[in-house]
Write a protein that binds this DNA or RNA. Structure first.
Length: 495
RNA sequence: GGUUUCGUGGCCGAGUGGCUAGGCAGCGGUCUGCAAAACCGUCCACAGCGGUUCGACUCCGCUCGAAACCUCCA
């Protein structure tokens, strides 16, 4: 089957044919979290979006190196000139080592991403572990003449860069507008120009995170880490750079400028950006205080939540929207997602039960046109800029076929059933990365079952129906479940 | 104010210049001891006003409304 993947490139604002620089290899860099708080629904979106890209590229047979960073230094609370490092602030408040904070929240991030069935990237580098690379990059930019040192800090000279190259082409901004619109802030005297940004900041005495450098004891600017680490692991020109749309400016714009100033050429072929999660029409974010953490979703412990929503419900909810659309949170929408996903998984179970034993390999050609069409539709949707909602719609078409066949209202041949299973295995589980969570509440189910069984047995004992009562106890014993009758009723243990 | 984007039925969400999106909810059937599930059928759309066109929800313009970014946020 011919697979021509098109992805939307933010740089050109068009869908472009994906042609890796060095096939069959594909390199992808995605901006990861700043680890100073629990992951929320907003973090799930890019993680799942680029997990989808990762999984699909792997499915197509590319050898993918996926790098997603952990920001544990350099990301400031306010403006660089007087801002404080987020991690450092949290460390001071909680009386902990900064690295303790970073470690704690990075671990939490990994656990929650695992539960969302997000595959671990190939490399997850940390900014604090790449000081040498970052300092070297600052040196390169200085040597190229696109930065200047002022009082121990190094700033990127945006105006000079803009004379040779073009600053703002990713976000569509014009430098003159930026200059006139940039707010005047205290202590920006060091900058020659308000649009300039810091590559290296000299640490103030109260700062607890700092490293030695040729210019001062200090710390790197936020944009620097991604340029330095992507170049280290993917080279100076790589395929895909991803992240949230909110990072377009200034973060990605500045990354482009840094890399280009240092090397003289473009660093990224395709820029991909996922849209935001909104809540009541507003972006869900830290600054607005309207975010719901993933833990709160899983336990239902947030005042806006009417129930708990499982990781797969969250994943399905996110995949039901195209990644470049905003997605609005609501209890109703999530409940609908929960039911829809259940319908898909139940149909898959039904399908598995209908399959004959030892079914040989099926081939699309021998299947009916409708199954082949289904597979074609799934590929076409994925190839059209990762259109997961259309893939899901196609799978629901498969659900209808399966259920109709189970109802004996529509005939499906054995190869057709087998092919259908392969489509579900590839798309529902492999590419969309969904899975059946039934195992998770098995314990709950067994508890409920046992309560029911014991209640029925209790009734039979009350009517002195010892035959039934003993049959239940003996049968359970064979399943290694021991029933003990006490004064307060019966209890059970499972060896 | 600038940049980017969006406005689809009760809710969520795709898509296309003429041909069913899909899910959830509703309604009417089939099935069923009852219920559930499933299946079949069905109702409810394309912000407004102009323009281009044989034909626009889809292209263009304007109006109204919303969001993100321009300061940290995925």
């Amino acid at each position: 089957m011919e697979n021509q993947l098109y992805i939307y490139n933010t740089l050109s604002r068009k869908k472009e044919l994906f042609e890796p620089i060095n096939p069959p290899f594909a390199g992808m860099y995605v901006c990861g979290p700043t680890v100073y708080g629990d992951p929320h629904l907003g973090h799930a979106r890019p993680a799942i979006t680029f997990d989808l890209v990762f999984r699909y590229l792997l499915h197509l047979g590319y050898k993918v190196r996926y790098v997603r960073n952990i920001t544990d230094v350099g990301h400031l609370v306010a403006d660089l000139d007087e801002g404080e490092d987020k991690i450092a602030v949290k460390a001071r408040v909680e009386q902990l080592e900064p690295m303790e904070i970073a470690q704690y929240y990075a671990d939490r991030y990994f656990v929650f991403m695992d539960s969302l069935n997000v595959k671990r990237p190939s490399i997850e580098p940390r900014a604090s572990g790449h000081m040498i690379e970052q300092i070297r990059l600052v040196g390169q930019i200085l040597d190229a003449g696109y930065a200047y040192v002022e009082n121990g800090s190094v700033y990127f000279d945006v105006e000079k860069y803009n004379k040779t190259y073009e600053y703002g082409k990713l976000s569509g901004r014009v430098l003159d507008d930026l200059l006139s619109n940039t707010r005047t802030l205290e202590g920006q005297d060091e900058k020659h120009n308000p649009a300039d940004f810091a590559l290296w900041k000299k640490a103030q005495p109260e700062h607890i995170m700092h490293w030695p450098s040729p210019w001062s004891e200090g710390f790197p600017g936020w944009h620097l880490e991604c340029s330095a680490m992507s170049a280290k692991y993917l080279g100076n020109f790589f395929d895909i750079h991803g992240g949230g749309m909110d990072l377009l400016f200034p973060h990605h714009e500045s990354e482009i400028a840094q890399s280009r100033a240092a090397t003289g050429h473009e660093s990224v072929k395709y820029w991909m950006h996922n849209n935001m999660v909104t809540i009541q029409g507003q972006k869900m974010g830290k600054s607005l205080g309207n975010f719901i953490t993933l833990e709160e979703f899983f336990t239902g412990s947030h005042r806006l939540l009417e129930q708990a929503f499982s990781p797969m419900t969250i994943r399905f909810f996110i995949l039901q929207a195209h990644y470049r659309s905003t997605i609005d949170f609501s209890n109703e929408a999530l409940a609908a997602a929960e039911k829809g996903l259940k319908k898909l998984l139940t149909a898959y179970d039904t399908l598995t039960k209908m399959l004959p034993e030892n079914q040989p390999q099926a081939f699309l050609e021998e299947c009916g046109g409708k199954i082949a069409e289904l597979a074609t539709n799934c590929y076409a949707a994925m190839n059209d800029d990762l259109n997961s909602p259309v893939v899901i719609a196609s799978l629901f078409e498969g659900v209808r076929m399966i259920n109709s066949a189970a109802d004996k209202k529509e005939a499906l041949s054995a190869p057709e059933l087998q092919m259908l299973k392969e489509i579900f295995d590839s798309f529902l589980f492999g590419i969309l990365g969904l899975k059946d969570e039934k195992g998770n509440d098995q314990h709950e189910t067994i508890d409920g079952l046992m309560q029911l069984i014991l209640a029925i047995r209790q009734k039979s004992r009350e009517t002195k129906d010892w035959g039934t009562s003993d049959q239940i106890r003996d049968t359970l014993q064979k399943l290694h479940i021991t029933v003990k009758d006490g004064k307060e009723g019966s209890t059970w243990t499972n060896e």
